[in-house]
């Protein structure tokens, strides 16, 4: 009973709040695709450009006042699409995509600056979606560090197991690696399970 009362007041307090929702994860896990999908679904406009080249998002991209209405409540969010987190940025990786050396070096610098910005934003986000690629092993330094930081700061988060439309997707592995965290399986590219993600967002943020 007490829990219900507390939840009621919590929902009441959060009704009008503009939640800063950060999209975190490694590079090329589909953060921008997911952010675009949400933004298009909810306000009809994308957030940023998507590319197969790593570190396409090298600055924090935002879409403000994205409203999610569910269950009679309204959640207003600022979507913050963060640059992909990496522990090493090497210009030679970009040269494999046809960039010249100078251009690749400049991109590496911008990408590193983006990582620094994304990490600093951990201080300011109200909630986070940690996006992981279901076709890859999610047990890595970046995901562990991200989740540790979010937990230590009491920032509510959801793990989004993305790319479930791809043949190598293994969401069971994601759940095994993170058994105690809320996980939503989606395909940002096809839109599969996005409604489920919105419901989970409402449950965890409202």
């Amino acid at each position: 009973m007490l829990k219900k009362i507390l939840n009621f007041f919590r929902k009441l307090l959060f009704r009008q709040k503009n939640v800063k929702l950060g999209f975190y994860g490694s590079t090329n896990v589909g953060k921008t695709t997911l952010a675009n999908r949400m933004a298009v679904d909810l306000v009809g406009e994308p957030v940023g450009q998507v590319s197969p080249v790593p570190h396409e998002t090298r600055a924090v991209m935002s879409k403000e006042r994205v409203e999610l209405k569910t269950g009679g409540y309204s959640l207003v969010m600022n979507i913050l699409d963060m640059p992909g987190i990496a522990v090493k940025v090497d210009y030679r990786d970009f040269m494999e995509y046809g960039l010249g050396k100078k251009e690749a070096q400049e991109r590496a610098k911008e990408a590193t600056r983006g990582i620094v910005e994304a990490v600093k934003w951990l201080e300011d986000v109200d909630a986070a979606l940690v996006v992981v690629d279901s076709t890859e092993d999610p047990y890595n330094q970046i995901n562990i560090t991200l989740l540790g930081n979010l937990e230590a700061r009491n920032i509510p988060f959801l793990i989004v197991a993305n790319k479930i439309d791809l043949p190598g997707a293994n969401t069971k592995r994601v759940r095994e690696v993170f058994p105690s965290y809320p996980i939503v399986e989606v395909s940002a590219a096809t839109g599969e399970n996005m409604e489920l993600l919105y419901d989970e967002l409402a449950i965890h943020l409202l």
């Binding site: 987190i85 990496a86 522990v87 090493k88 940025v89 090497d90 210009y91 030679r92 050396k101 690749a104 070096q105 400049e106 590496a108 610098k109 590193t112 990582i115 620094v116 990490v119 330094q141 970046i142 560090t145 991200l146 540790g148 930081n149 937990e151 230590a152 700061r153």
Partner: peptide, 16 residues
């Protein structure tokens, strides 16, 4: 030039 290593800040709920 163009090669960077980033050490992510580590935090664990039990460590604060």
């Amino acid at each position: 030039e163009g090669v960077y290593y980033v050490r992510l800040p580590f935090a664990h709920p039990e460590l604060g």
